[in-house]
Write a protein that binds this DNA or RNA. Structure first.
Lengths: 199, 199
DNA sequence: TCTTATAACGGACAACTGTCCGTTTAATTA
DNA sequence: TAATTAAACGGACAGTTGTCCGTTATAAGA
């Protein structure tokens, strides 16, 4: 059976959308720019935009794609460089990268977080490579931390997921503001939390 | 100076809104009901509705008010009854109550979570009594857990906040489904995580 | 009780979201 | 190269959000 490859106009429009959104977000910020405005500015139909991206959060998540690749590479490098350090330290290292990412890409992340309603949805953050990768790496480190424990322990996947959720932009910026901490102070407290290990 | 008391019609409308929203949510679910529909059904103007509630999430949060009071009382009772148990056990007890609440009130919580955009906003979950109460109680228990530690430790407020954030409905239901765990199994894993204490 | 100031009301409106459906266009096949 | 076919397009539309502003009703004071 022959596989029809993606039509040229479809590909061009996808690139045009990302380009246009990037420019509009740079000029006005993410939140104030509407999907209508993106379509209008790009000179394409509303439906063409929605056919590619289910909602603005979906679009924002795709705009984080390259950043996500870069982040995953950096984390991989970090883990290799520090392979002989304690697992808890490497874990807090990943958390540090994650916090930097939130600070860097706050607007896009907040948008994609707020539109994340339906499970198994296009544009669900929990389906993104960045989330899956980080959960996996954190899970491995947590498994290493609790590894030599005979009594039944918690599921490292759940712990990793919990750590990532606790770093959702909404919650992160709230506590940061409420406590009046700097980014480095938050990192430091998370780092100390990672030092915890079973009684 | 004289304090004008709240006008009668304003009070009546507030009750009418809550009553109407309750009925509509019961019949159709939370997500499918629009603010327009609530106003129309209640027989009041759109602006009257928005004057009382900044958005649907704000309304949902208010609809959780009584439930929140009940929950706080239950947690208080629990803490008194178990005052002689280890702090980590009481902590996982609170988490248990919290998880039950998520399961009970998923729809309202998801709605209020997804509309929580601006900090210091009416209808921000982090301003709600339920959040503040739980964070305070968890923070006290965490302080107790790490209390007799001479080296600098993490801020219990941050840890408490992190635990609550990790239990946001979106994240909770995602991991529950992905792992195929029952509610009790999630509680069990959280309980084991709470057993952790400093190296 | 009547007047008055003002809080609250609500219809109408502008803008946004997301979808439908008839039309166009690119890739495949002859 | 022409015909075919299905993917992709985009204007238009219905429904929703959130606000504005002229009108109404209520509580306080005379």
């Amino acid at each position: 059976m022959s596989v029809r490859r993606e039509r040229r106009d479809a590909l061009e429009n996808r690139q045009l959308i990302l380009q246009t959104a990037h420019e509009l977000f740079n000029e006005y910020g993410v939140q104030p720019v509407s999907m209508h405005q993106i379509a209008k500015t790009a000179g394409i139909g509303q439906a063409t935009l929605y056919r590619k991206y289910a909602h603005k959060g979906d679009l924002c998540l795709d705009m984080l794609h390259d950043y996500g690749i870069k982040l995953m590479n950096e984390i991989n490098d970090y883990l290799v460089r520090n392979r002989d350090n304690p697992a808890s330290e490497r874990l807090s290292g990943i958390v540090g990268f994650w916090i930097d990412a939130i600070e860097d890409k706050a607007e896009l992340l907040i948008e994609s977080e707020s539109k994340m309603k339906c499970e198994n949805d296009r544009g669900n953050f929990f389906q993104s490579p960045m989330y899956r990768f980080s959960k996996e790496k954190m899970s491995e480190l947590l498994a290493e931390i609790v590894g030599d424990n005979q009594q039944p322990s918690f599921d490292p996947d759940i712990a990793a997921h919990a750590i990532i959720c606790s770093l959702s932009p909404g919650g992160y910026f709230h506590i940061k503001q409420e406590k009046g901490y700097t980014t480095e102070q938050i990192k430091e407290h998370y780092s100390r939390m990672c030092k915890f290990s079973p009684q």
